[in-house]
Design a binder for these strands. Structure first.
Length: 419
RNA sequence: GGAGAGAUGGCUGAGCGGUUGAAAGCACCGGUCUUGAAAACCGGCAAAGGGGCAACUCUUUCCUGGGUUCGAAUCCCAGUCUCUCCGCCA
């Protein structure tokens, strides 16, 4: 959410910043509502002051006048509320403004590759896709999932289930012991309020799974990413600057409707309604966002280095960034069967955008209160890491060599094969 | 599912119709003392919004939304959330 006070100072600058998002927001409407709102606030406050004075005076002869004021006040308050409401509705649907580092672009084709890392494996046979490999091993079962549940789900079985668990534990261990993140095992449901805080609501309600609880109670949603829960840890808080930065990591299932991606990645487990992901979240002083973004991105790529998987780092263009982000790096891992890089992590700085929505603030050394900066990044998507390992570590006979760093997590198993 | 209790500032916790934005304590900041620190003592310390170049000033806020009243943290109604006990259950 944008701070109206700042927008007010320079409408044109705000408009320009949003144009980078290829959005044409009707700022004149905001401007008009803002002015009306403030006029009504002033009127309201004058009446309130008058009332207050009467009640303080305890002068009975003025009591009837106070009643009169009350009735005119009522109308003003009602109008002011509705205008404020309209204003907030508009503001809550406007995405974050891209940072100046972010290249202008329309969609994913305009993203910029920054650097490539690792060695692309050179197979002397046609590399199979992860689903061929997994199904041949009898350890990925999509048919079974559609029987028990529906499309876009999968059963991971046997040694691949162990591998999946190993990946999760390995990543968590690194982030906790080397990167200074606090491990959290959070709720997998989030309140509507939390979903608003991180920007999933109101605009992206269609992508979310809502869970029916008791009639009349607060709405709850399955988390599309642990970012929602981890970031909302600081919701409605005023934090002492000295405890910042806060860094949290969690490995959780994520749930997404993937509405609007019909026909996209229908085969295999690239795009599922449910997947595991290790998520990092940082809460920082607002001017530390960008340096924390570099740090966080390095935490993510470090995992790929350790797994010896080839990848590239990409900076997203203005048109491809998520709603809450000011700057995003995607990490893409090499998938031999597709002969291209695919997203395995996305690290974003959300500046104070989410903090404003959440009312997450901190008190700095000068005792001034300002909004925190929030960042989130996958470290990494577990399902996609599994895919990448299957494809990059596959052998001619369809077996999978296990990356060395994962073996301690798998009873020192070196290879997954049919026998 | 049954029966109760509660929701107050960064935290703990008083107040239960009229300068109460709210006692007290903790935490925090500044000062005195000290070689330094601690202790002790003194002082300061809520947020949001509006107006003003500024000093400053005004309004709102004691879970949320209604109501009663000239006046509500305090009374009434509705809702949400939390906790305790019993039952059921991983």
């Amino acid at each position: 959410m944008h701070n109206l006070k700042l927008i007010r100072k320079d409408f044109e600058a705000f408009k320009k910043a949003l144009e980078k998002r290829s959005l044409d927001i009707d700022l004149s409407k905001i401007k008009k509502l803002d002015i009306e709102n403030r006029e009504l606030i002033q009127k309201k406050e004058n009446f309130e002051k008058e009332k207050k004075e009467i009640s303080k005076s305890k002068d009975k002869s003025l009591f009837s006048k106070s009643k009169e004021i009350s009735s005119s006040l009522e109308k003003i308050v009602e109008k002011q509320k509705s205008i404020k409401n309209d204003l907030e509705k508009i503001l809550s649907n406007i995405p974050n403004v891209p940072h100046e580092d972010v290249p202008f672009g329309k969609d994913e084709n305009d993203n910029l590759e920054i650097e490539k890392f690792g060695e692309i494996p050179d197979f002397d046979f046609r590399p199979k896709s992860h689903y061929e490999l997994g199904e041949n091993l009898g350890m990925l079962d999509f048919e079974l999932a559609s029987k028990t549940t529906g499309s876009r789900f999968v059963f991971v079985k046997n040694k691949l289930a162990l591998l999946e668990r190993a990946i999760s534990n390995f990543m968590l261990d690194i982030h906790v012991s080397k990167n200074g993140y606090e491990e959290i095992s959070p709720p997998l449901l989030a309140s509507a309020d939390s979903m608003f805080g991180t920007g999933q609501l109101p605009k992206f309600e269609n992508d979310q799974f809502e869970v029916k609880l008791e009639e009349g109670t607060e709405r709850k949603f399955l988390i599309p990413t642990a970012e929602v829960i981890l970031t909302n840890i600081v919701k409605d808080k005023i934090i002492e600057a000295k405890v910042l930065p806060l860094r949290f990591v969690a490995s959780t299932p994520c749930f997404r409707k993937e509405a609007g991606s019909y026909g996209k990645d229908t085969k295999g487990m690239i795009r599922q309604h449910q997947f595991y992901k290790v998520e990092m979240v940082s809460i920082v002083e607002q001017d530390k966002c960008l340096e924390e973004l570099e740090r966080m991105t390095n935490c993510a790529t470090n995992i790929l280095d350790l797994l010896k998987l080839p990848y590239r780092k990409v900076i997203l263009c203005s048109g491809d960034m998520g709603f809450s982000a000011e700057k995003t790096y995607d990490i893409e891992v090499w998938l031999p069967s597709e002969n291209k890089y695919r997203e395995i992590s996305s690290c974003s700085s959300c500046s104070t955008f989410q903090a404003t929505r959440m009312k997450a603030r901190y008190k700095d050394q000068k005792k001034e209160i300002s909004y925190v900066g929030t960042l989130n990044g996958s470290g990494l998507a577990i399902g996609r890491t599994l895919i990448a390992i299957l494809e990059n570590y596959q052998q001619k006979d369809g077996s999978i060599t296990i990356p060395k760093v994962l073996r301690p997590y798998m009873n020192n198993l070196e290879k997954i094969s049919l026998n």
